[in-house]
Simulated scan of single mutants.
Amino acid sequence: MDMMLEAYLSHEGVIEPDDIPQTKETIWILGKAYLAPHSVEIIRRDIRSKLWFTYRKNFVQIGDTGLTTDKGWGCMLRCGQMVLAQALIMLHLGREWIWTPDTKNKIYLQILHMFEDRRTAPYSIHQIALMGASEGKDVGQWFGPNTVAQVLRKLAVYDEWSDLVVHVALDNTVVINDIRRLCHAKTPAEESSSTESRGDTNSTPNEWKPLVLVVPLRLGLNEINPVYVKGLKTCFSFKQSLGVIGGKPNHALYFIGIVGDEVIYLDPHTTQPAGLVEDKQHEHEKTVDESYHCEFASRSHILHMDPSVAACFLCRNEDDFDLLCQQIQESLIEQEKQPLFEICYERPHHWSPSEDSVEEIQGATACLALEDIDRQFDDSDEDFELLG
């Protein structure tokens, strides 16, 4: 059903949203702790500041597919967009940044433009859907958490502004030195530029590139095994948390917080007209911007989640990464009989070579049909029309 899953309680004739429970338990929203009775409006303001991507209709068609809406198939793609958008906001504006309807912050608008429903936007539904072909997914086919993470990993290579490394951990294992090498590696363009400026071929370590770490997990067969619940809850308390993508079969959700045994999430299953914010100088652009922010989040019992999820984290610098590794070791491994995932310094010998290098990722995109690559980076939105 095309609606937001919102519940309301009535008390003495006054209807209040039931998004934030009246509880003395700590509420965690992406690594930040709140006490609800005294912080409900502050929590809502924090949640409203997250970019909320939903189904859209009447955008310029994706490639030559004729598809002008992602209703019914794009929910996991939208959840992937929400994770990455939150990473960019934390990276460029900080975790404490707050959105308001009057916000015209240029950096915020630049981030939003990267996800709008147009061909030129680097993380648009168009780019994600077309890049999905390199993961064996046709445009219009539903993605799982791992697939959308792999696609974002490839698209991030072209984002020179943020210079992100998106790493997708394999086999529930975070390999520390693989990640260090990736985050210190130079791109071919950087290597060429530094070599020309020095006039030699000696390579020096690069500064740390911000890391988006995605850990795909299978936490049970048909439902989450309760043994993993504590570890999953703990992930939301890490300051590096970007939340969890998952949901139910063919019904993706973006989980941003936890309170007691309930997860707090943003739901992409609302269909809105496509539109552009531009510089937010006109009233209709302000209205479009407001459509990217959810007034009230939803809640569900953690055991109602599908067992196929992906935990996501942002490490802006190497200290963030070192702290995350320490937290994983102390809180997710040493404290648990059945760890949520593992961590090691070097990759197991039986694993295949890493495919995370820039050259490997760029090579992987070559499997897309040439006409799709041309279309993927087409700088024209010819015939773009909003039909209401």
Rank of each mutant, 00 (worst) to 15 (best):
M3R: 14
M4K: 14
E6H: 07
A7Q: 08
A7E: 08
L9D: 11
H11K: 05
V14A: 06
P17K: 11
D19M: 06
D19N: 07
I20K: 04
Q22R: 12
T26S: 12
I29R: 12
L30H: 01
E41Y: 12
I43Y: 01
S49R: 02
L51C: 04
G63T: 06
T65M: 04
L67M: 09
D70A: 10
R78M: 06
G80R: 03
G80V: 04
A85P: 01
Q86A: 08
L91H: 13
L91N: 07
R95T: 10
W97H: 14
W97K: 10
I98W: 15
I98L: 15
W99T: 02
P101A: 11
D102K: 15
D102G: 13
T103R: 15
K106E: 15
I107H: 09
I111G: 00
L112Q: 09
M114Y: 15
Q127E: 13
A129H: 06
G132W: 01
K137C: 14
G140A: 08
W142C: 13
V151P: 00
L152C: 03
D163N: 11
V166R: 00
D171S: 13
N172I: 09
C183N: 02
E191L: 04
D200S: 06
D200P: 02
P205T: 12
L213F: 01
P216R: 05
L221E: 11
L221Q: 10
L232R: 01
C235V: 09
S237A: 05
S241V: 01
L242F: 00
G243Q: 00
I245P: 00
A252H: 03
A252C: 10
F255W: 06
I258M: 11
I258L: 11
G260D: 01
I264W: 01
T271R: 07
T271A: 03
A274W: 00
G275H: 10
L276A: 09
E278L: 15
Q281S: 13
H282R: 14
E283N: 12
E290P: 03
H293A: 05
E295K: 15
S298G: 06
S298H: 09
R299K: 11
S308Q: 13
C315K: 02
N317I: 02
E318R: 09
L324H: 02
C325Y: 06
C325I: 08
Q326N: 10
I328L: 04
I328D: 00
Q329D: 13
Q329T: 15
E330P: 03
L332I: 01
I333P: 00
F341G: 03
F341Q: 05
E342P: 04
Y345V: 09
P348F: 12
H350C: 12
S352T: 12
S357T: 09
Q362M: 14
G363N: 10
A364K: 06
L368Y: 05
D372C: 07
F377T: 06
D379S: 05
E385W: 12
L387E: 11
